[in-house]
Amino acid sequence: MLTRALIVVLVILNLGVALWWLLRGEPVSEPPASPVGVAQLEVLPPTQAPPAAATPTNNAPALQDVTPASAPAATAAPVGQPPVTPDLPPTAVAATPAPAATAPAVAPGPAAAPAVAPPAPVAPPAAPAQCVSLGPFADRATAQAAQSRAGSALRTARLREVADAGATRYRVLLPPAASREEAQATVKRIVAAGVSDYYIISQGEETHAIALGQYRNREGAERRLAALSAAGFKAKMVASGGDGSAQWWLDATLAAGTEAAAARQRSGAAQQRSLECARVR
Score class of each variant (00 low, 15 high):
Ala138Trp: 02
Glu181Thr: 13
Arg160Gln: 13
Val93Ile: 15
Ala74Phe: 11
Ser245Leu: 08
Gln48Pro: 13
Gly232Gln: 04
Gln147Trp: 03
Val132Asp: 00
Ala112Leu: 12
Ala123Ser: 10
Ala231Gln: 11
Ala74Asp: 12
Pro110Lys: 06
Glu205Asn: 09
Trp20Glu: 07
Ala230Tyr: 01
Phe137Pro: 07
Cys131Tyr: 04
Leu88Met: 11
Leu173Gly: 12
Pro175Met: 02
Glu276Gln: 14
Val132Asn: 00
Ala107Asn: 06
Phe233Gly: 08
Gln64Lys: 07
Ala123Gly: 03
Glu42Cys: 07
Pro82Asn: 13
Ala145Phe: 01
Pro90Gln: 15
Ala126Leu: 06
Gln81Arg: 15
Ala183Arg: 01
Asn58Glu: 15
Gln144Thr: 07
Thr207Gly: 04
Gly25Pro: 15
Glu259Phe: 01
Gly242Cys: 07
Leu13Asn: 09
Leu44Glu: 03
Ile12Glu: 05
Ala53Met: 09
Ala105Ser: 04
Val8Gly: 14
Ala18Asn: 05
Ala112Pro: 12
Thr142Lys: 08
Thr91Tyr: 05
Gln271Asn: 08
Arg216Gln: 09
Ala231Ser: 13
Leu275Val: 14
Arg279Glu: 06
Arg158Lys: 15
Gly80Cys: 07
Tyr199Asp: 08
Met237Leu: 13
Ala177Phe: 02
Ala39Pro: 12
Gly80Ile: 07
Gly268Tyr: 06
Gly16Glu: 00
Ala157His: 05
Ile12Tyr: 01
Ala52His: 05
Gly109Thr: 14
His208Thr: 04
Leu10Val: 13
Pro104Lys: 04
Thr168Arg: 12
Glu206His: 04
Ala263Tyr: 02
